[in-house]
Amino acid sequence: MNVHRYSSAMALILLALAGCANSSSDSQKNSVPAACKIRGNSADSVICMTSFTSVLADPRHFDGMTISMGAWVESVNDVVIAFPSQDSLQLRDSFSSVVVYHADNPKVVKFLAGLPSSDPKFVRITGVFHWIADDAKDSRANPIDANRVGVMERVDVSL
């Protein structure tokens, strides 16, 4: 009788462990970086509210996600370049910057044109982030993207 009790207990433990293993693999598929505070009411409008520093720390976790972060932005020729700090902007630290193309993001151009001067501004940028991997063989990157962390598309800007 004790053997039956022990085998039943062992079977329950194995089932519980198997259930935990499946749930952890499901959560990894839909994982959201810990640095995200999710905003949105539906699956279509989920935005990861994060910091630029978090994106710089591990950009692969944010690749393809709609993110929103504070950034210092400056319009240069046909692009907007976003930096995590005013210091990195003044140093033109390309390794810690993200590119936003005017042609792909007319809202950004309109927003920047409405500001009183062309000086760099601290804004909140929201859009789809695409990481430029260092070892990407078939990168979509243009020459301006060299050494940058990534590119943002479908961007909206606010103060």
Rank of each mutant, 00 (worst) to 15 (best):
G40E: 09
G40M: 09
G40I: 12
N41F: 08
S42H: 13
S42W: 08
S42K: 13
D44H: 07
D44I: 05
S45Y: 07
S45T: 14
V46W: 05
V46F: 06
V46Y: 08
V46L: 14
V46C: 05
C48H: 02
C48G: 01
C48N: 03
M49R: 12
M49T: 05
T50N: 02
S51I: 01
S51N: 03
S51M: 03
F52G: 00
T53L: 12
S54T: 04
S54F: 02
S54K: 01
V55F: 00
L56K: 08
L56V: 13
L56C: 13
A57K: 15
A57R: 15
A57F: 09
D58M: 09
D58R: 11
D58F: 07
D58C: 07
P59Y: 07
F62Y: 15
D63T: 08
D63Q: 05
D63R: 08
G64D: 09
T66I: 15
T66N: 14
T66H: 08
I67P: 02
I67R: 00
I67N: 02
I67V: 15
S68K: 06
G70A: 12
G70I: 06
G70Y: 06
A71H: 01
A71S: 01
A71T: 01
A71W: 01
A71L: 00
W72D: 07
W72Y: 12
S75A: 10
V76C: 07
V76F: 10
N77S: 13
N77Y: 10
N77Q: 12
V79Y: 15
V80Y: 06
I81T: 11
A82N: 03
A82S: 05
A82T: 03
A82F: 02
F83C: 03
F83H: 10
S85G: 12
S85L: 13
S88C: 13
S88K: 15
S88N: 13
Q90H: 12
L91G: 08
R92Y: 09
D93Y: 09
S94P: 00
S94E: 12
F95I: 00
F95K: 04
F95A: 10
S97F: 02
S97E: 04
V98H: 03
V98F: 05
V99E: 04
V99R: 11
V99L: 08
V99D: 07
V99H: 05
V100R: 04
Y101K: 13
Y101D: 12
H102C: 07
A103W: 07
D104M: 14
D104F: 10
N105A: 05
N105Y: 06
P106R: 09
K107A: 15
K107F: 11
V108Q: 02
V109E: 14
V109K: 15
K110L: 15
F111A: 08
A113D: 14
G114M: 13
G114D: 15
L115D: 01
P116F: 03
P116W: 02
S117I: 01
S118I: 00
D119G: 01
D119N: 02
D119P: 00
P120T: 01
P120N: 03
K121W: 07
K121C: 05
F122K: 09
F122L: 11
V123G: 02
V123H: 05
V123S: 04
R124E: 10
R124C: 06
I125E: 04
I125S: 05
I125L: 13
I125H: 04
T126V: 10
G127V: 04
V128W: 06
V128S: 10
H130R: 14
W131M: 07
W131Q: 05
W131V: 05
I132D: 11
A133W: 01
D134V: 09
D134E: 12
